[in-house]
Design a protein around this nucleic acid. Structure first.
Lengths: 223, 223
DNA sequence: TAGATTGTTAATCGATTAACAATC
DNA sequence: TAGATTGTTAATCGATTAACAATC
């Protein structure tokens, strides 16, 4: 096999396929064709087959794919075949939503520790965990050995937290803070931005509605 | 101007530029070059200029861009120059995190109503709002006239909620439920999937770590 | 004017789609 | 065998990057 780089969109879709497959598996479905996957996932059959082709051959021509086997394979590919410990930084509303998120378990993600810098919160229970002092992050992760972390703190604190996470051996960060993190090249960051998503929607729902109105600037916003 | 379709990634980046510009404006910065924007946003200067070019001309050659003017223009483009009412469905942990999210205000998004189907919750206060009966969704939105909504309910309820939202005149949905929504073509959906993001990170942090292990299936997962 | 930086065009890159030979 | 569906190749499409003439 040639060393082809896997496109990020392919990895994202893999998670969608897995979700569909887990549902089908619950329902006792044993085999699925790429055509059927298109129906359930909204992703084209050709795309599905192409995505899988980056990792090997998983189907039988004329038959389709074994649901349980494909689940196993995708879980292996995404390295969620074993439980993945995750550090959560920020014990606010968003953090609470995340520790209570029921779907993590099905994908074998486990929030293994929660940190905050607010001494009023430190030591308090948080879901099934106890909030730890952010200062102990490196020390605690020496035990846990997590590679993944979630940043759920205000934008003003996010970079400092990111630096501490990198220092503690984290190499993948899911960032909810609306800011651009600077990290070393071996660390991967994915940003979740509600504002960005809403902005894109806002543009679309208003399309065709706009009234061109000069600002009085040196040039109009020609929209 | 020719009728060029604006790429979605361009719209996403627009929100990032806006965030940077708002920060700079706070700091009293009056002018910014595309080069400086690259530094602050991590997005290349060429990309920045190209992105803006879909909407008009906003800079002065040899000088750069006026920060306040560009803020105004981007807000106009994204249609967040006026307050945008948003319906929130789902008064759980995630919903609580969203109504309490401080950054919405800066982008003039306002959660105008919260709905749930749990009669224990209906009528209770939720942030500064009171939880409404989901059955009253259409009725309530007849007053509010929101075009945008956020789905923060379990996957099992998401499609039903989406149908009700469409019925109530919503044309843009931010979906937090891990499921593929079926909506009419005039309705735009953006999905936020923590699991998907974590899966992509999980793949990356584990790269190079993998041990090829046959499953005993008809063919190995060749990863 | 000289220096800086824009807006745009052309070249590159990468991802998606379509088509089909191989295979069950 | 005939019918179905895969995995892969080639064609298409779209987005990013680089380069530069126009402009302040």
């Amino acid at each position: 096999m040639t060393e082809t780089r896997v496109p990020i969109p392919t990895l994202e879709r893999l998670a969608t396929y897995l979700r569909v497959l887990l549902d089908l598996n619950e329902g006792g479905v044993e085999t699925i064709s790429s055509q059927e996957m298109e129906h359930y996932s909204g992703i084209s059959a050709a795309q599905f087959r192409k995505d899988l082709s980056y990792f090997g051959e998983f189907g039988k021509p004329g038959v389709g794919y074994s649901v349980p086997q494909l689940i196993e394979c995708i879980e292996r590919i995404l390295h969620i075949d074993q439980e993945q410990p995750i550090l959560l930084v920020g014990a606010g509303n968003l953090g609470a939503a995340l520790v209570g998120y029921p779907n993590f378990r099905a994908h074998r993600f486990r929030i293994a520790a929660v940190f905050d810098n607010n001494f009023v919160k430190i030591g308090r229970p948080f879901g099934e965990l106890v909030i730890e002092d952010i200062a102990r992050l490196k020390e605690v992760n020496a035990q846990i050995g997590a590679k993944l972390a979630i940043i759920a703190v205000p934008a003003s604190a996010a970079q400092t937290v990111a630096d501490m996470l990198v220092e503690a051996g984290i190499t993948g960060i899911l960032n909810f803070a609306p800011t651009v993190l600077k990290v070393p090249p071996h660390v991967f960051v994915r940003n979740v931005s509600f504002l960005q998503e809403l902005a894109v929607l806002s543009y679309h729902v208003a399309e065709g509605t706009e009234i061109a109105q000069p600002t009085g600037g040196h040039r109009d916003c020609a929209i």
